[in-house]
Every structure is written in C-alpha cells, then in structure tokens.
Design a binder for these strands. Structure first.
Lengths: 241, 241
DNA sequence: ACTTGACACGAACGCTGTTCGTCACTAAAA
DNA sequence: TTTTAGTGACGAACAGCGTTCGTGTCAAGT
C-alpha cells in the first residue's frame, strides 16, 4: 500500500482551493435557480424537493439547510422571476400609458415562466422584487395626483387582477403539458370543446349563451387580459382628481 | 339450531327494501356532500380521498366508481357551492346595481365555504351552476344593451376578479387554520407584521411605500373587494352604449 | 335458477414533504 | 500544531398522498 495522500505536501499553486472546494457547496441561490430551471422545463407538478436535490446532485435533506420548506422555496422562485420585470423611468403625466405598459410587462414575464404564477399565488408576495414593483406603481399613481388611499387600493387590485389572469394561464399550461400537446393544438381542442358544449345546451334555459357562442370563444387570452386591464384603468381614471 | 331466516316469509310491508339496502350505497352526491363537509370543517389541506372515504365508512378505492379523480371531485364540490348563489329576477334597467349585488352575493357564498375558492380556481368552472350564473350575468349585460363581445368579455373578467379575490381570501384562511388562530387574532397579527415590515424599509428606496404605510393597511378584505369591483363596473359603464 | 355486470373494497405501488442522526469537513482556539 | 466547535451534507426513514389492481359479493335480467 502506498502512503496516504495526506502525507505528500500540497503544491503551493493549489494552496487556495477555497474557491473550488471538494465538498459540494450548496446555497440558496443555487437552489432557487435549479428550482426555476425545473419549473420552466417540467412545470410546477414536476417540481419536488427531491427533483431539485437531484438537479444539484444531492439528497433532499440537504436543501433544508438553506430553505425552510417548499413554500419558502416557491416564494423565492417567484420573487426571482419578478426580478425580470423591467420598469421604465416613471413619468406621472403619462401614468395611464405607463401603468398599462407595466401590466403588460408583468404579463410577459409571467408568461415566459408559465407555471410560476401557480406558485406565486400560493402566498402573498412580499419579497424584495415584489416591493420594488409595488413601490413603482404606487409612486406613479401618487405622483400623478391620486389619493394615497385610492392609489394603495388600485395597486392592490391591479396586482390581484394580473396574478389572477396569470394563474388562469398557468392552469391551461399545466393541462397542456399533462396532455403532452403543443400550445396551438391544446388551444384549438379546448376552444372546440367549449364551443361544442355551449352549442349543445338547451336554448330555452340558456338563451343568451347559446345565441352568442361565437363571440364567447372569439378572443384569446391576451385580448381578454387587455380588456379587463382597460376596465380597471378606466375605473382608476374616474378616481383621478 | 333454529331454521334459517331465509325460510320464514318476508312480511309484505317490508317487501320494498330497495330504499334501505344492506350494502352501503355510495353515490356521487353523497361523496360530494361529504367532501364539502370536510372542506368546511378542516379546509382543503384536510381534504384527501382517504379522508372522504373515512367519512363515508369505506375505503378510498370505493370512491373511484363515482368520481374520476380528486380534481373532478373538487370541481363537483365547487359547482355544488355555486348552487347556493341566489339570483334575483333580472332587471336590465338596473344592470349596474344588480351586477354589483350579484358579485357581493358570490363573495358571500364563497366566503361561507372559505376554502372552496382554492379548489375552484384549480380548473375552469364549467358545471351546471357555473353555466346558470354565467347565463344570468351575460343576459343582464346583453339585455341592458351591451355589445355581445363586450358582455362576454365583461362576464369573463368579472368572474376572474371575483374568484381571484376569493382565492386570496382562501389563502389567508388556510394560514389562519394552520396557525390555529381565530380570524381576528390572525388578521391583527398579519396586518401588524406587514406594517412593521413596511416601516422598517429604507425610505430612500421606498419613499412612497414608507410614507403611506397607514393607508396601505387601512382597508380590510371586503373594502378592497368592493373597490376593485367598482373599478370594473365603472369601466363597464363606459362601454355601455 | 343461472348468468351477468356493476360496484365495494383490501392491498399495494410509487410518489410526496419533512425530520433525525450521523458523519465529514472547515475554521477558530489553545 | 493539535484540539475543539460548529456547520452543512446526506442516507434513511416516517407518515401521508392519489390512484390502480384484483377479488369478492350482491342485485337485477334471462
């Protein structure tokens, strides 16, 4: 048997190995990043603590030194995604356009990480990026002259509306993935199913629904989102002194 | 030993025993009702197929003859709850007031079965009661003279808003139950936490948020719901020819 | 009276989030 | 340089989940 490796002196140029330790170094960021990767690739249903651990070549117990539980991990992932929201310089004279652009930017970001909305609505968002975004919208309304109370309520309701819509989108995305379908394929099948069901309803019980089936299935998710958004924005305009 | 009971003739007045069979008779209604009972008493987290089976003195496998899976059971429970929504005779000349009353009625019903909203937003509601309620609101807007397209989108967005708000309420309810707290106790603790957190933020990064902490925590869930509701209703008014 | 089909249900599979105890390692103290 | 303390990685296990399979039993139809 040869001598133990511990006996031979370590070459000086390898002295500072602190940067690349032999022991796997976990961290909260690594875990959150791995979780987001899985969320994007396999959806919320595929995101288990075991799956995250596997992604990091370790066991599930190792994660709990950096993350309290799955719920906290989901919150961290959600806030990490909110960090992708780009906010233009606020210009209170254009508050309505900017609020609209903001909402659509959030819609875009949440759409890019489709299933994250299902995770985010599982708790009241309070992370640093949620605060940053909230401060932006709140300040925009305040600077535009709105009452602090109305501004606070407006921010709150707008956030609820956006997350609610994203959540609904997440559901469809999850079903689509579960069925192994492509976006277009799923969408067509779903709309067709609704249409057929509506048309099969008894006209005497559902006169309006059966009469206007075509318009009820006409608009896609984006148009529906913008319609509701404009309802809210018009409502806010009426409350702007 | 006496003669077998099978030998003695059955009295004619006990002939029709079909109504009370010896064999336990399950049915979808029984399962849905048991599920709703558990949902109300123990919350969505306490509602498992095993728990429902236990409530009906049977094994979990027995349920699957009447219900495809847990998701379908949740949909059935949700629609069963929507059945509690009372709808007054539609009067298109008062469409705005009636729409408002309708929304608050749904808010009430979903509030009475606190955790059902978490179950309902897990899929697009398409049960008979969802249709009934949808036809009501849709018809109200149509008869009031609104474009079919705007009416359809309005119904859709209003439903999203109401369920989204109820969902958020469900989350708080679940946390409250998990912490074993009473409503008031939980609410005070939650608001106090938010308030303290907001006040601890650096004022240079969050000037507006820190300045208006008091108004941001002033309104309760009901007032926030009505504020958003009125935003939407005002927006709809602008689209009424 | 016999067959058929529906349904109740025990047992099991593979999965989940989380905890416990142990062990390896680093960094500070002696 | 040796000892000590403490942190974090992690294997194993627990209790619970949704769901499926196979078997058995009952009620209605022939």
């Amino acid at each position: 048997m040869s001598r133990s490796n511990a006996d031979v002196p370590v070459p000086p140029w390898r002295k500072s190995r602190k940067s690349v330790p032999l022991r796997r170094q976990l961290s909260q960021d690594l875990i959150v990043e791995a979780g987001l990767r899985i969320l994007d690739a396999e959806g919320l249903d595929g995101l288990s603590m075991r799956r995250v651990a596997q992604e990091l070549d370790t066991g599930p117990a190792s994660l709990y030194a950096h993350v309290a539980n799955k719920e906290e991990l989901l919150e961290l992932i959600y806030d990490r995604v909110l960090g992708e929201i780009r906010l233009p310089e606020p210009d209170p004279s254009r508050w309505k356009e900017q609020l609209r652009e903001y909402a659509i930017e959030v819609y875009r970001v949440l759409g890019e990480h489709a299933d994250v909305a299902r995770a985010g609505l599982a708790s009241v968002p309070m992370g640093p990026n949620a605060l940053r975004v909230g401060e932006y919208v709140f300040g925009l309304l305040i600077e535009a002259g709105m009452t602090p109370r109305d501004a606070a309520l407006g921010v709150d309701r707008l956030a609820l509306y956006i997350s609610g819509d994203a959540y609904e989108g997440s559901l469809h995305f999850a079903k689509m993935r579960a069925a192994g379908q492509e976006v277009e394929e799923y969408f067509r099948a779903f709309v067709g199913q609704i249409e057929g069901y509506y048309r099969s309803l008894p006209a005497e019980m559902f006169p309006h629904t059966t009469k206007h089936v075509d318009v009820m299935i006409a608009e896609d998710g984006r148009a529906r989102f913008e319609f509701g958004l404009d309802l809210l924005l018009d409502g806010l305009t009426a409350r702007m002194p």
